[in-house]
Amino acid sequence: MNDIIQHLPELISGLGVTLALMFSALVPAIILALLLTPAARSKHLWLSLPVDGFIFFMRGTPLLVQIFLIYYGSAQFEWVRASFLWVALREPFACATIALALNSCAYTIVLLKGAIQSVPREEITACYALGMSQFLTFWRITLPRAIRIILPAYSNEVVIILKSTSLANTITILDLMGVTNKIAGETYAVIPFLFIAGAIYLALNFVILSAFRSLEKRANVYLYQASQ
């Protein structure tokens, strides 16, 4: 028990790093996914093929390999180290963020693609009939509809990214998992600290899922109004 209180500040700082990793990965992932989804849906092969290839690679390989490729793999080449990219790639935090963001981006594109396809065709046709442009239809009708559809699935994606941040400790980052490993190594009280970390992750999960549930309620508010 004494051990736990003594190491509490470390655990809290680890938790901070975990949260920072999660948010700094999720935000670029969403933006990139929104930009790339139209490309993935494009009829032109030169647009859709690269995106499909990217998704294929990110979904077919373990995140751990991706993190190591970006962190250790990039450092193998002199020209990478000499380029402007190195400003970011020399920082482990940036490498972990890049890996997590690219990974999440690939999965988000797949979710978005599926959701857009499930938007009823008639609604889109109706928009065109009303004289709305293709872009306006996408921006005002298709996308909001699709976002509402993917919200439940996207909450899972956020949880997955939260869990995946734990791999960052393999590249020297002291996130919650890294701190836990460090304390366990110092005190040799491995099992209690693993359970503490587990409880913290579960609590974070609960917060994320509750937040999404209230978000879903708000996004679908018209459903409730209609039924009243």
Binding site: V159, K163, S164, T165, S166, L167, M177, V190, I191, L194, F195, A197, G198, Y201, L202, N205, F206
Partner: peptide, 13 residues
């Protein structure tokens, strides 16, 4: 609990 914890943590436990 299993779904909510990082896979790595489950393996360690």
């Amino acid at each position: 609990s299993i779904c909510g914890m990082p896979e790595l943590l489950v393996l360690f436990i």
